[in-house]
């Protein structure tokens, strides 16, 4: 059943979060930036589950993970709706094309 030590899980989650942060920072494509955000949310889920398992199978961790998944789904839907709206306006999904608020 539970094979992996908590510290290894935390290191794995840290690496996943770092990869997501890297993708969010180095890409300009808004869709890939959103994918990176999803990876970071998954890393947070992994930390929550590792902590829940470490503290004697507390259910609060799992419940928080369910909520994070629901919020991530809502965020992905709204974000992709925004991207399609922006693409209709600018004919581009590059983050550098959305500069209309610049003074």
């Amino acid at each position: 059943m539970p094979p992996a030590p908590t510290s290894a899980l935390l290191v794995l989650a840290g690496c996943l979060f770092g990869i997501g942060a890297l993708g969010f920072l180095i890409r300009r494509n808004l869709i890939v930036m959103f994918m990176s955000v999803e990876v970071m949310l998954n890393a947070a889920n992994l930390v929550l589950l590792a902590a829940a398992r470490d503290r004697g199978w507390q259910v609060e961790g799992q419940i928080l993970v369910i909520f994070v998944i629901a919020v991530a789904a809502a965020e992905a839907a709204v974000g992709l709706g925004l991207i399609t709206a922006l693409h209709r306006l600018k004919k581009s999904v590059s983050a550098d094309s959305a500069t209309d608020l610049k003074g």
């Binding site: 290191v11 979060f17 770092g18 990869i19 942060a21 890297l22 920072l25 300009r28 581009s92 590059s94």
Partner: peptide, 28 residues
């Protein structure tokens, strides 16, 4: 479009690497 869209410069990789390194050191 969107294929070679990597940002120029080192700020992003350095920042992300710093974040990852800090997280790893903290966890360890």
């Amino acid at each position: 479009e969107g294929w070679s869209d990597f940002r120029p410069g080192l700020a992003g990789p350095v920042l992300a690497g710093g974040l990852t390194g800090t997280a790893l050191v903290a966890f360890l």
